[in-house]
Computed example of a mutant assay.
Amino acid sequence: MSPWWLPVAVDSGQSWQYTLGPLTLYLQRLRSEWLLGHAILHDQDDRYLLRSRSISQLPELENVQRFIFRESPGHFCLKPKLLDRSVVVKTRKQVSIPAGEQAVFYISSPVVVEVTVQQPDCKLAEITSQRLSDTWFGPSTLHGELCYADKTQARHSRTDLPLRPHRAITAITIENNADSMLVLSKLSIPVPYLAVYGLADGSLWTDPITLQHDGNLALTRFKISKHLPAGVAMTDRIAEPRQHIEKQGLIRAFTGIFND
């Protein structure tokens, strides 16, 4: 893969197709307007695609939007951002961590693609790269939050990570400080609080997080690590968090994180 968040120059009258996993974006620049449409595939065999090319014309799409300018900007740029809600991931296999142990898992979540034109800069739209269903996460209907639902392999080795241009990887350290076995079937990733980092190999990473379990299922400590994963540097930061952590909101958001 290669970085897909760099600007692309487009001549007036030229059309462009950009495919990121299941999402395909269609853009056309005219003298005084830009056209933008998209399509999302559900065929999982196509989720690793990364393709950028000029096309003769836009296909027939119902969601094409028009953006009018006195003179249309000459570049477009796609920027990855994280979702606006936490993502609840259900592990495909149950995971158990003995008392006093800790484990690191690499879990990815789909990004939102911010489409902008440049020179001058103007944000056109934000488009989710993969559709996720809604889910409620919390101990009751009164306490918790509305999240997105996803599934994960909860990979324990970084070398096992597949290359997927539309998903950002979060390194999650889980510390079991209790005196009993910790059994995980799902957990919540607070992606709105995390920044995005883009590497030269085209992969996307987020701030790493640590979840500390002390034996009380009602409360779990959460912190964003100051130490980025190996190979990721602050200079690779390409998107800021959508939200900043507030202490009281943090407790509500992560109540019951390890409950089935």
Rank of each mutant, 00 (worst) to 15 (best):
L182F: 10
L83C: 01
E175S: 15
T170M: 04
I172K: 06
R47C: 00
D150Y: 06
G74L: 08
P165R: 01
R47L: 08
L82P: 02
T91S: 14
V95K: 11
G138V: 02
P162G: 10
R167C: 09
L36Q: 08
P165V: 00
M234K: 05
V88I: 04
S188E: 10
W205Y: 13
L187T: 09
M234P: 01
G138Y: 08
E62S: 13
I251V: 15
C122K: 10
L49E: 13
H213T: 02
T152D: 03
V8G: 05
A154T: 01
G144E: 00
I68K: 07
S203R: 15
C147T: 09
V117D: 01
K123M: 15
R158V: 10
F67Y: 13
S96T: 12
V104S: 05
L228M: 05
F67R: 07
E246S: 04
T173G: 06
V112M: 11
I209W: 01
D201G: 08
S96N: 04
L41F: 06
S133H: 01
T206G: 02
V183D: 15
K226Q: 12
P139Y: 06
M1D: 00
E246C: 08
V113M: 05
Q28K: 11
R47M: 03
S86C: 14
I55Q: 00
A230H: 12
I189Q: 07
R70Y: 01
D179A: 14
V183R: 11
Y48Q: 10
E240V: 03
E71P: 00
K151P: 00
P3R: 11
A178T: 05
L58Q: 10
D121V: 05
G100Q: 11
T255I: 08
A230D: 15
F67M: 08
E175P: 03
W34G: 07
Q243K: 15
A99Y: 05
S96W: 07
K247D: 15
Q102A: 07
R66L: 05
Y197W: 02
A230G: 02
L25Q: 13
K90M: 09
P73A: 06
L163T: 10
K123F: 11
R47E: 14
D45G: 00
I169L: 10
H143W: 09
E33M: 08
L219T: 11
T19Q: 14
K223R: 15
T206I: 10
H75F: 15
L161E: 04
E101R: 13
R92H: 14
G202F: 09
Y26G: 03
P3Y: 15
D236R: 03
W34L: 00
T128S: 14
G215P: 09
S54P: 03
W4R: 03
A218N: 07
